[in-house]
């Protein structure tokens, strides 16, 4: 494992820690999209089915379990915690799941490496992860009320993708067998979705202000 990959994973992990910290300390999930969290949970469940049939390393297994548990934990807080659930912006978070889930499922059935249940589900998770942030970005645009932690959460999620791209470039040159075009294409799309957000995030940061969206 190279440093880009490790830094990417840590960035991903850190973004989740930030969310849990925000929810736990402020007892609020204001500004967070439950739709995005549900989509990520679906991504983890469909991708990490391989926990049952393949083993890569202890590191991978532990990280997969952390991602699964934390995503269910976040959803539990947003849905069932007495105080937290009252802070959820239900009226603003109106993005429909099927708008993303259906096209990703269809695409996974058409463009995949092998037409088997596990492979299609894995491919579906790759496509869905690429677009799962959209409800969160829409909510952000709508509420314009971006607290620091939500801004940092999205920043670290974007950083995770950017670091993975560096990891792929590194692996492309160092591992001749490593060619995952499908994953790379989805990863590029995913990182691209953050470009606009990054622009405003860095601008606000430079000006030493809170994140403001136009």
């Amino acid at each position: 494992m190279n440093l880009f990959r490790l830094a990417g994973d840590m960035s991903h992990l850190f973004s989740i820690v930030l969310i849990l910290l925000k929810i736990y300390t402020s007892k609020s999930c204001a500004g967070l999209s439950m739709k995005t969290q549900e989509l990520y949970t679906l991504v983890f469940v469909t991708r990490y089915l391989d926990l049952f049939y393949s083993y890569v390393s202890l590191y991978n297994t532990v990280m997969k379990l952390i991602f699964l548990a934390s995503s269910f934990g976040i959803l539990w807080y947003m849905r069932y915690h007495k105080q937290v659930k009252q802070t959820y912006d239900r009226e603003q978070d109106t993005f429909r799941h099927y708008i993303l889930v259906v096209p990703c499922a269809v695409l996974a059935l058409i463009v995949n490496n092998e037409l088997s249940v596990t492979e299609v589900l894995w491919t579906f998770s790759i496509y869905l992860e690429a677009v799962a942030i959209l409800p969160q970005l829409v909510l952000l645009q709508r509420t314009k009320n971006v607290d620091n932690l939500t801004g940092q959460y999205i920043f670290f999620l974007g950083a995770y993708r950017a670091l993975y791209i560096l990891n792929w470039i590194y692996r492309y040159w160092t591992e001749p067998k490593y060619r995952q075009y499908l994953v790379w294409a989805a990863g590029l799309v995913q990182t691209g979705l953050y470009a606009d957000f990054f622009y405003y995030y860095l601008k606000s940061w430079q000006a030493g202000e809170k994140l403001r969206l136009p």
Binding site: M63, E114, K177, V183
Partner: peptide
């Protein structure tokens, strides 16, 4: 076709 050992990322 992608070998399983290539799926070592998260």
């Amino acid at each position: 076709r992608i070998a399983k050992e290539l799926k070592d990322e998260l």
